[in-house]
Design a protein around this nucleic acid. Structure first.
Lengths: 153, 153
DNA sequence: CCCATATAAATCGGATGCGATTAAATCGGA
DNA sequence: TCCGATTTAATCGCATCCGATTTATATGGG
């Protein structure tokens, strides 16, 4: 029988922060499935509608800043939501480069329909825990974005 | 001038736990970009290699359990990694339904090359904070998975 | 032994993300 | 004014993710 080959003892995948975030994002997608099926939209489509409810008549770029997405991802999603009748897209007459996105009545109605359906209970967290964890994750996000923007060192 | 239309005051997208996780996952992907380019693999390809380093000769299903992915996602990725020379795929002679995946020498070398490159500092978190947040996110993931598995209530 | 059932992986189509590029409009300095 | 640089969306190709189905193999009751 061979002697075991000595190997470096690297940190386990289960302890990676990136993997915790990655796999929890997958888990959220699966947990959300039933709600999103009822609403008839995907997750990304849904957060676009939520963001537009909070601030209507946004440009694609402005909406993208809030969703952390760029036009290459957002444009097809917004076009799809337009064909579904939930929003309107139109060039800004003041600056024809920009496209203004606005919710339709159907889009606002969908936002309200979805407002009741939440996964807060599914997190199994107490309100204080929930808020603290949410803030900690956002802080992590902020730090990662700062890191990506800085020159490599 | 019109009076403002009264609207329900829903929670802000910025306070959604799901969106914190979703957007932090995007941020991780962007922060990882430089490292992954050096390694010449994508994020999902990389975690597959890390998981195989920890336990070699796994079935597609077993690997999928650890990565929270199923064969429909994993199979194309493993085929790609095979063409890149980082792993070997072969049917289990004991049960021809199963495919056993094993790292090649090149795959192990890649794992070692990537071991030095980490984003721990980019999180901007102290070691205690880091561990606590990582555990809290994993707990959230566990709760979400339990919720998705339970009959709808 | 036979065949219905179960299991594992693969396949296929739709919807993101994203790097790279393109097209159109605006800006700004000579 | 003119034209190159900048800005904003959109387009394109590749790599996930996932629901649904298919294929191949294994299992078990009669």
């Amino acid at each position: 029988m061979d002697a075991p080959v000595p190997r470096p003892n690297y940190p386990q995948l289960a302890d990676f922060m990136c993997f915790a975030v990655y796999s929890t994002n997958l888990a959220y997608g699966r947990a959300y499935k039933a709600i999103l099926e009822e609403l008839g939209v995907t997750y990304t489509q849904w957060i676009a509608i939520v963001a537009l409810w909070e601030e209507d008549h946004q440009t694609v770029g402005g909406l993208g800043e809030k969703l952390f997405l760029e036009s290459n991802t957002l444009t097809p999603i917004l076009k799809k939501l337009e064909t579904l009748g939930y929003l309107h897209r139109g060039r800004d007459p003041k600056d024809e480069r920009q496209v203004i996105v606005s919710l339709t009545d159907a889009g606002r109605a969908l936002r309200q329909k979805g407002a009741q359906k939440t996964l807060v209970k599914a997190t199994g967290l107490e309100p204080d825990e929930f808020r603290a964890l949410q803030k900690a994750i956002v802080k992590l996000r902020t730090n990662l974005i700062r890191h990506a923007a800085e020159p490599t060192d």
